[in-house]
């Protein structure tokens, strides 16, 4: 019972925690004027993880901190910065958590090796299943 009350409280917690009354940052919910730049920004934002919400990208989040990060991403793209440089800058500050695109590191290489390993395994196991085409 106590536990369920807690869960209910947690569910209710998000809106009860006060939010800033400041309006959203200039580019939080407004697109860049140049469609090519906006497309770059949109692709980057879709692959950056919101710092406070549960598993959403900043482009899918209503959290204010996500809005501020969208603002920053758009401003820097507008200033001509490369999307991957912005991603690297953020990873430099928050670690790999912030990016939905895992990098190949000593920790994550199995993610990238897995597809190849699976195919190799399938080949080894299936090799003997086939008859010779002459059979």
């Amino acid at each position: 019972m106590m536990r369920s009350l807690l869960i209910a409280a947690l569910l209710a917690a998000a809106p009860v925690l006060a939010d800033s009354t400041l309006p959203p940052a200039p580019y939080a919910n407004v697109q860049l004027e140049d469609p090519a730049q906006e497309a770059k920004a949109a692709a980057l934002m879709a692959s950056l993880r919101c710092l406070q919400c549960q598993g959403q990208s900043i482009s899918d989040s209503d959290a204010q901190i996500a809005g501020d990060l969208r603002n920053q991403v758009r401003l820097r793209i507008k200033a001509g910065e490369d999307p991957e440089a912005i991603r690297a800058w953020l990873i430099d500050r928050y670690g790999d958590y912030v990016s939905y695109a895992p990098r190949v590191t000593t920790l994550t290489w199995p993610l990238f090796a897995a597809p190849l390993a699976l195919l190799a395994l399938a080949f080894v196991l299936l090799r003997r299943r086939f008859t010779r085409s002459a059979a």
Binding site: A25, Q52, Q64, I65, D68, L69, Q72, R93, Y94
Partner: peptide, 14 residues
Amino acid sequence: DNVSAIQFALGSSG
């Protein structure tokens, strides 16, 4: 810091 810019620069998340 009205657009959380310094917050991001510090790697702070809330």
